[in-house]
Design a protein around this nucleic acid. Structure first.
Lengths: 248, 248
DNA sequence: CGGCGTTTTGAGTGCTTTCAAGACCGGTGG
DNA sequence: CCACCGGTCTTGAAAGCACTCAAAACGCCG
């Protein structure tokens, strides 16, 4: 992780006022707001807890609310007519879920773990957007980032082998964890093989076989349920990049 | 096409002032601007022509400019280390190309046809964004749309058979042409089999075979180079949706 | 301990790719 | 006018990678 980022994060934590709804970590929507705005957003939003497997909202529901994931992991999915599902992304603590300019949500959001969410009504958000232009800029920035990530995923799904896709997925877990400020090789992985498969455009059997193969090569370990340790990060990384060096 | 849309379009064409750089059609960035803003944007932007196969910008180039495609078609691609390319999208007349909140462009933009572009310096855009908040909202809206389209593409590439992907691509051509206000079954298709393949995560041979197969079934015709006529739109549509009814 | 969901593993199939060659088309120059 | 050329498209045959179907192992929880 870029040391500058760590510094900036710490600076934020001490200098910036705290969104009372979201709790101590200033993330999600609140990041660019000043004290007045935070007061306002705190009074208009509220916190909720939901259990694993709960559905936050469904594709097609009226998009009346925006959520910030305070804690936990969610998957975003689109359903196909034939019953298959495509996972379009995973969301982690600090991420915003369900913001759209349309009238309805474009995908399902389902929790993979118990989670806490910060909930804000769309009309309140609209008011805030009018009063705090920085917020709109923040949303645009997030949207651009999300677009880049989805395009990246498109490349992964469209042009890479099963092994490269799974490797890329593991690297994306590392990246997501870094964004949350943690480092190290031991990762939470709350998604099932089926979830991963639906994300990567593979079958769950292929994902299982590939992870087993990584394990046999000594690249990863799974010390507990829903935990992975990346032992040979180089090998995984170069496989993900397409630089198939078979790095020892 | 929704008749309401047509109405709204016509209303726009008569009521809205014209961006002098972009020409008579009010599209791209200019749509939400008032007369003062249009004056400003006209004086700060300029029009350029480029031939087919020209590169507008490359992935990694400093993102110093934003373009509106006045005329013509472009493809946006990301290059993989192994030399393969993934087409992340096509852009048509009226679309914006190259807007990002990052410092560098996230993909290559290459013209498929001779084209005219409206060019605007990023710093000028930043100024406009400050003065005209509606513009930022417009950009956000475009970004959300683009994100939805990319997720749609992810579903197509990740979970569908070759035939369904090609069918979905043909339907996307129809949709794109509708956005530009035209209707009918005869479409421009300026992309090569290889371009289509790189968009759909297939090989050019598979795309060719699939189109040939559609032709033999009487679903499409190709009356001229880079033109397709969709004869059995129902069949193509339901194949694209996954509703494989084999509709006669 | 039994039950259920998840994961692993195996065997066989099939869709798409790969490799290869020929056809087609438009443009160019003799 | 026509032959040639390069690029694009089509078609064929064979191979491969991931899928499908199937069953057993595992691990969690009541």
């Amino acid at each position: 992780m870029n040391p500058l980022d760590t510094l900036r994060r710490q600076k934020l934590d001490t200098d910036t006022p705290v969104c009372e709804t979201c709790g101590s970590r200033v993330a999600g929507l609140c990041r660019p707001l000043d004290i007045a705005a935070l007061d306002e957003i705190s009074s208009e939003s509220d916190q909720m807890s939901m259990p694993a497997r709960a559905t936050v909202f469904r594709e097609g529901d009226p998009a009346g609310r925006v959520f910030t994931l305070i804690d936990g992991t969610a998957k975003l999915t689109r359903l196909l007519p034939d019953g298959k599902q495509q996972v379009v992304g995973f969301r982690y603590a600090g991420d915003i879920i369900g913001y759209t300019t349309k009238d309805t949500y474009p995908f399902d959001a389902e929790l993979l773990t118990d989670a806490r969410l910060c909930r804000l009504d769309r009309k309140n958000l609209a008011g805030l957007l009018g009063r705090y232009p920085a917020l709109e800029h923040r949303l645009l920035d997030l949207c651009v980032q999300e677009l880049a990530a989805t395009q990246e995923q498109l490349v992964t799904v469209g042009r890479r082998t099963a092994e490269a896709r799974v490797a890329a997925f593991l690297m994306s877990l590392v990246a997501a964890r870094r964004r949350r400020g943690a480092v190290g090789r031991l990762l939470e992985m709350p998604m099932t093989r089926a979830d991963i498969a639906d994300f990567l455009g593979l079958t769950l059997e292929t994902v299982s076989r590939t992870l087993t193969s990584f394990r046999r090569r000594g690249w990863i370990r799974e010390p507990a349920h829903q935990r992975v340790e990346l032992i040979n990060l180089n090998a995984i990384s170069s496989l993900a990049e397409g630089t198939a060096d078979d790095a020892a």
